[in-house]
Amino acid sequence: MSRARVGVQVKPEHAAYADIRRTCAALEEMGVDVLFNWDHFFPLSGDPDGAHFECWTMLAAWAEATERVEIGALVTCNSYRNPQLLADMARTVDHISARGGEGRLILGIGSGWFERDYDEYGYEFGTPGARLDALDRDLPLVKERCSRLNPAPTRPIPVLVGGGGERKTLRIVAEQADIWHGFGDAEKIAHKHAVLDDWCARLGRDPATIERSAGVSPQPGRFPEDVPDHAAAADALYAVGTRLFTTGLSGPDFDLGPVRDLLAWRDAVNS
């Protein structure tokens, strides 16, 4: 059975970059497995016009500043970049992150949802269905371009797809992703796993080849604050097959306490 891993989303909002960088260094030292940011142009909580930094520029900096931890966006918005360009960006960050071996990038991606990003930066928002169709169309283009780049990526870059739509998103995961990420309690996640497994059966994919990821902390301003105990939430999610457990940190203070608890839980279940 695959081991439990811990990911931390260091939100690129309401903090100076120096503080974000110090937080990432501390998290790597603590033993976190994956560092995530997110791909938005404005804060998702607090002051909507507060301090905020761009996703992929930051990932390149993290690739240089860290040594061991995997890095990625939770998640990249497919709408914001040409898929050929995104492939080249991902390949480049993959190489920057390599330390004498394979790179450490996870290509987290989703169809997009935050309308203000689209409106203020001049992207067409369209409909959820059209954005999912675009993701379905573009992921093969990303992979195809990666196969043609010189130099090639240091490894097949793992693709994480975020979202819980049962008719389109989970089919895309079954066809094209290495990791699925969702939000919800154990009952909801177990249901999504069953739907994903069914899509895998229809498409001839071994469901065990898809790592299951879920958030185990509240996301202020977007998700209800209904997870008071990170370890208890992780226990319940682990029982239904989740193996990558993510928690979010908000600036400017970045409280590391919940991460310590989650790491202690991880080490206990993996022992």
Rank of each mutant, 00 (worst) to 15 (best):
R116Y: 10
A130C: 08
A15H: 00
C77K: 00
E211S: 13
I210T: 06
I20A: 02
S79I: 01
L139D: 11
L249M: 07
F36L: 11
L203G: 13
A239E: 13
T154N: 09
A186D: 08
P43L: 06
L244R: 12
T66Y: 11
G46T: 04
P83F: 04
G163K: 02
H193W: 04
K168G: 00
A134C: 07
R5C: 11
L105R: 04
F36A: 04
G251H: 09
E175L: 12
N150V: 15
V75G: 02
A268N: 12
D226R: 14
A208S: 15
N270Y: 06
A177C: 08
G31S: 09
T209N: 10
A51G: 12
A73T: 05
W38P: 00
I157S: 02
R22K: 14
V240L: 01
V216T: 08
D206I: 10
G163S: 03
E120L: 15
L59G: 08
D33I: 10
V240I: 09
Q219Y: 15
G126F: 03
F254M: 06
A61W: 08
A130S: 13
A25K: 15
A232W: 08
G129M: 10
G50H: 08
L35I: 12
A60L: 06
D255N: 14
Q84R: 14
L262T: 01
A233V: 07
D19R: 13
T127K: 06
R148N: 14
I172L: 11
G110Q: 03
F183L: 07
L196F: 03
F114W: 13
G126T: 04
R81V: 00
F42K: 11
D47E: 11
E102D: 13
N150A: 14
L59A: 06
I96A: 15
G129T: 09
I157F: 02
A177E: 00
A16N: 14
S217H: 09
E67L: 14
E211D: 13
A134R: 14
V259C: 05
Y238S: 13
H40V: 11
M58G: 09
Q9C: 10
A233R: 09
L35D: 01
Q84A: 14
G50Y: 08
L141I: 15
P252I: 12
K143P: 05
S271I: 10
H14V: 09
G182S: 09
